[in-house]
């Protein structure tokens, strides 16, 4: 049983992914194919909302590593937002805040694209 789910919503020219549950080596491929699908559809402004995500391992972090250079090369970005402390800790351990734009709230991430 996979205890991970994701929803995708379009907000203007930005695609927002809402993650829920547990993101590990078993569930990460689901997120990877969803992001790959958005990029293939020509969307390079992506926001990932972690508000309902309880857990992440490096397999989840790896998904963002795969696409970050590609979307930035196309003038977009993958902005990460609304992480619980436990989830942020894992990003922080690996130094991700240096490479990724991580905001407290989704509105901040969206506003950065609008700017």
């Amino acid at each position: 049983m996979s205890k991970f789910s994701l929803e995708q919503k379009t907000n203007g020219s930005t695609e927002v992914f809402y993650l829920k549950g547990f993101l590990d080596a078993h569930t990460a491929p689901e997120l990877e194919s969803a992001i790959a699908g958005a990029i293939a559809a020509g969307n390079h402004r992506l926001v990932v909302n972690f508000n309902d995500l309880e857990y992440i391992s490096s397999a989840g972090l790896g998904v963002f590593m795969v696409f970050i250079e590609e979307v930035r090369a196309s003038g977009g970005d993958i902005k990460l937002t609304a992480m619980k402390q436990k989830v942020y800790t894992v990003f922080d351990l690996l130094g991700f805040p240096m490479l990724f734009d991580i905001t407290d709230k989704e509105e901040e991430a969206l506003a950065k694209f609008a700017a």
Binding site: S57, S58, G62, V63, E69, E70, V90, L93, L94, L99
Partner: peptide, 24 residues
């Protein structure tokens, strides 16, 4: 230890686990 910028440039998604284990 992984070099994050280099990994991003190489689109690498693995290699972080061991680093996490050592850190925690």
């Amino acid at each position: 230890a992984p070099d994050l910028k280099q990994y991003a440039a190489q689109h690498r998604k693995g290699g972080f686990g061991v680093h996490i284990i050592r850190m925690v």
